[in-house]
Design a protein around this nucleic acid. Structure first.
Length: 564
DNA sequence: GCCGTTTTCGGCCCGACTGTTTTCAGTCG
C-alpha cells in the first residue's frame, strides 16, 4: 500500500516549503498527507478504479496534489519534490523531525551555524554552540539532546487492540486519585478507529496541577514533553504520545466533544453552529457570549438540532445529514461464535473460555478451532474433533450454552477441509480462507462460493483476509458474494481481531445495501481477547448497522435456527 | 494549495506550553 509513502512525501514537501517561508502551502500539503495516511482504501486501487478524479475526491486533495499523486503512482517520483529538495541543503528537512525544532529554528541553526543535518547538530551540541544563539538557551540544548535519542523511533500508529490495555490502565490509575472527579478517553480511541496515532485523555479535577503531576508519574511514561496546570503531554513506553487535558466540571461535555473529533466532524458541526447563530468551542456552546450548553455532549447536539451522535460514527459522512436509527450497541451481543482454545492455536481451555464468556453476560459461545489442513495452527484431525465435540457437550457453565464448531479451511479448489459427515455433527461451521491469497479475482469468488454452497456452512469468516499494516486484502468480487449470502441465508463475519477488523465499515456498508446479515466474532485466541468484541461492534456502528442486522444479538433459540 | 447554500477569490483554528524573553515567538496538536 503506497498511501504512507505518498503521505510521507507530502509531509516532507510541507517541511521544505515551511523552511522556504512559503505561506499556506505547507498546511495544504499536510492536510492532504493526513488525509491520505488515514484512509482505509488503497490509493492505488482508487486510482485504478476512478483515475485522477478519484484522487481529487479525497478531502484536502485538489487538482495539483492529485496530479502529483498520479505522477508518483506512474513514475515513482514527483518532479516538484525533487526540485524542492534541491532548494535546501540535504538533511535540513530531517532536522524538522527533532521534536521542538520547527522551520524557524532549523533555519536559524543553518544560517548562523551552518548546521544542515543531524550529525552536524550533534557536533554543535557537544561544543555547546547552540545555547548562545538568539532564541535558544541552555534548556534548548538539553531538550534537543533528549529529542535526538528518540528520533529513530518514528511515529507509528498502533492497532486499536494494542492501545486498549494501556488506556484501560491509565484511566484506572487516574480514577484512583482522590482529586479526580471524572476521566474519559477522547480522540481516535473513543471513536474506535482502526489505528491510533496518540491518546487523548480528558479529566475533571479539584486540583489540575496535582492531576497533571500524577499523570506524568504514570509508570508507563517514558518522557514528559509538557506539563502545566491544565495540560500534560507525555511519551509512553510504546512510543505513543498521550495528552491529558483537565477542564472544569461544566466544560466536560464541550471539551469531550471537541477532543473526540474527528476533525472534519467538528469543523462541520462548528459551521452549523455558526449558521444557527452560535459559537462552539471546547468551553461550550455560546449565543451572544452567553453560554447555552456544554455540560454534556448530548445537550450540545440537542441545542444544535441533533440527536446524540455516538463517537464511533463521528466521521463526517452522513451523521450530520441524516436521521440516525437506533444502532447496534455493545450490550446487544449475546454470544461469540468464533473462538479458539488450546486444542488448536489458542491459549486457554474450553472451560476457561466459557467462564470468561459468562463474565461478559453472554448466553452462548461457539468453540471453533482450526481444521486439519492448518497444521501450522495445530488444526484438529477428525478423530480429535469428535472427542472435542463430546468435551464441549460435557462442559457445563450455568446460563451459558456451549456450541461446538469449526473454522474450516476453504481449500484451493473450493472444497472444505472436513467431510460433510463430520460437518453435520457441528453446531457452527465457519468457512475461512487461510491460503492461496494470490488467487485471481474470478477464481477466488468461484472458490468461496463453492464452499458457501455447502449446506453445512453458515458463516464466512474474515472475508478479505487483510492484516492491517501487514497484508493487503485479497482481490475479491465482494458484491457477488454479498448477493449470494443474502439470497442463501449465509452470514458474513465481522471479525473483531484488532489486526483484522475484517469486514471494515466501508465493506459492511456495501454488504448492508445487499441486505446481508452479519455475525460479529472476536476470533479470540485467549480469554482476554473476548473483549475485542467492542472493536467489531464499533465497525458495525460506523456502517450504521442496527440490532436486527447482526445475528448474534438473537436469543439462543432463534440464533440456532439460523445455523440449521 | 484547497475550498466554497456567506464562493472562483480570499480566506485558511487557535489555545496551551515552553523557554526565552521582559511581553512573546515558536512549536505543537
Amino acid at each position: 500500500m503506497k498511501n504512507q509513502e505518498i503521505a510521507d512525501i507530502f509531509y516532507n514537501m510541507a517541511d521544505i516549503l515551511e523552511i522556504l517561508n512559503v505561506n499556506w502551502k505547507p498546511q495544504a500539503y499536510r492536510k492532504a498527507a493526513r488525509s491520505i495516511e488515514s484512509m482505509n482504501e488503497n490509493i492505488e486501487t482508487i486510482y485504478e478504479k476512478k483515475g485522477l478524479k478519484g484522487i481529487d475526491e479525497i478531502p484536502g486533495v485538489g487538482k495539483s496534489i492529485a496530479k502529483k499523486t498520479e505522477e508518483y503512482l506512474k513514475t515513482g517520483k514527483i518532479k516538484e519534490y525533487e526540485n524542492l529538495k534541491k532548494k535546501i541543503p540535504k538533511g535540513l528537512d530531517e532536522l524538522m523531525d527533532v521534536m521542538g525544532l520547527g522551520p524557524k529554528k532549523v533555519k536559524k541553526l543553518f544560517e548562523e551555524l551552518k548546521i544542515k543535518n543531524i550529525k552536524e547538530l550533534k557536533t554543535a551540541l557537544k561544543k555547546h554552540k547552540i545555547e548562545s544563539l538568539e532564541g535558544f538557551g541552555k534548556k534548548s540544548e538539553e531538550n534537543i539532546e533528549k529529542s535526538l535519542e528518540l528520533i529513530k523511533q518514528r511515529k507509528k500508529r498502533l492497532l486499536l487492540g494494542e492501545v486498549y490495555p494501556i488506556v484501560k490502565e491509565l484511566i484506572e490509575y487516574l480514577k484512583e486519585k482522590k482529586e479526580t472527579k471524572k476521566v474519559e478517553v477522547a480522540g481516535s480511541f473513543r471513536r474506535m478507529e482502526e489505528t491510533i496515532g496518540d491518546i487523548d485523555i480528558l479529566a475533571v479535577s479539584n486540583n489540575g496541577k496535582k492531576t497533571i503531576q500524577d499523570f506524568i508519574k504514570f509508570p508507563e511514561v517514558k518522557r514528559v514533553l509538557a506539563k502545566g496546570n491544565t495540560k500534560g503531554v507525555v511519551l509512553l513506553k510504546n512510543n505513543l504520545q498521550c495528552d491529558l487535558r483537565v477542564v472544569k466540571e461544566n466544560q466536560f461535555g464541550s471539551a469531550l466533544q471537541y477532543f473526540t473529533g474527528n476533525k472534519p466532524h467538528n469543523i462541520e458541526l462548528r459551521k452549523i453552529a455558526i449558521k444557527k447563530g452560535y459559537k462552539l468551542n471546547e468551553y461550550g456552546l455560546f449565543k451572544n457570549k452567553k453560554r447555552v450548553a456544554g455540560n454534556t455532549e448530548k445537550e450540545i447536539y440537542k441545542k444544535l438540532g441533533f440527536q446524540y451522535i455516538p463517537p464511533e460514527i463521528r466521521i463526517n459522512e452522513d451523521e450530520l445529514k441524516k436521521k440516525i436509527p437506533r444502532l447496534i450497541d455493545y450490550n446487544d451481543i449475546k454470544g461469540d461464535l468464533h473462538v479458539h482454545t488450546r486444542d488448536s492455536d489458542g491459549l486457554n481451555t474450553i472451560m476457561e473460555m466459557a467462564l470468561a464468556a459468562k463474565k461478559l453476560n453472554y448466553n452462548y459461545l461457539g468453540i471453533t478451532n482450526h481444521s486439519k489442513t492448518r497444521k501450522i495452527s495445530s488444526g484438529l484431525e477428525e478423530k480429535d474433533l469428535i472427542k472435542k465435540i463430546k468435551e464441549i457437550k460435557n462442559t457445563k457453565v450455568k446460563g451459558l450454552k456451549l456450541l461446538s464448531g469449526s473454522e474450516v479451511d476453504i481449500l484451493k479448489n473450493g472444497e472444505l477441509d472436513y467431510s460433510d459427515k463430520i460437518l453435520k455433527k457441528l453446531d457452527i461451521v465457519i468457512a475461512a480462507i487461510h491460503s492461496g491469497f494470490k488467487t485471481d479475482k474470478k477464481k477466488m469468488v468461484d472458490r468461496i462460493l463453492k464452499a458457501l454452497e455447502n449446506e453445512n456452512v453458515k458463516i464466512f469468516a474474515h472475508p478479505f483476509g487483510r492484516l492491517i499494516n501487514k497484508r493487503e486484502p485479497y482481490n475479491l468480487d465482494f458484491e457477488k458474494i454479498c448477493k449470494f449470502c443474502a439470497k442463501n441465508e449465509k452470514y458474513i463475519e465481522i471479525n473483531a481481531q484488532p489486526e483484522r477488523l475484517d469486514l471494515d465499515y466501508k465493506n459492511i456498508k456495501i454488504a448492508l445495501k445487499h441486505n446481508v446479515k452479519f455475525i460479529i466474532n472476536t476470533d479470540a485466541h485467549k480469554k482476554e481477547n473476548l473483549e475485542f468484541m467492542r472493536f467489531g461492534v464499533a465497525q458495525a456502528m460506523k456502517a450504521w448497522c442496527r440490532k436486527k442486522d447482526i445475528i448474534n444479538t438473537l436469543p439462543l433459540k432463534e440464533f440456532m435456527k439460523k445455523m440449521k
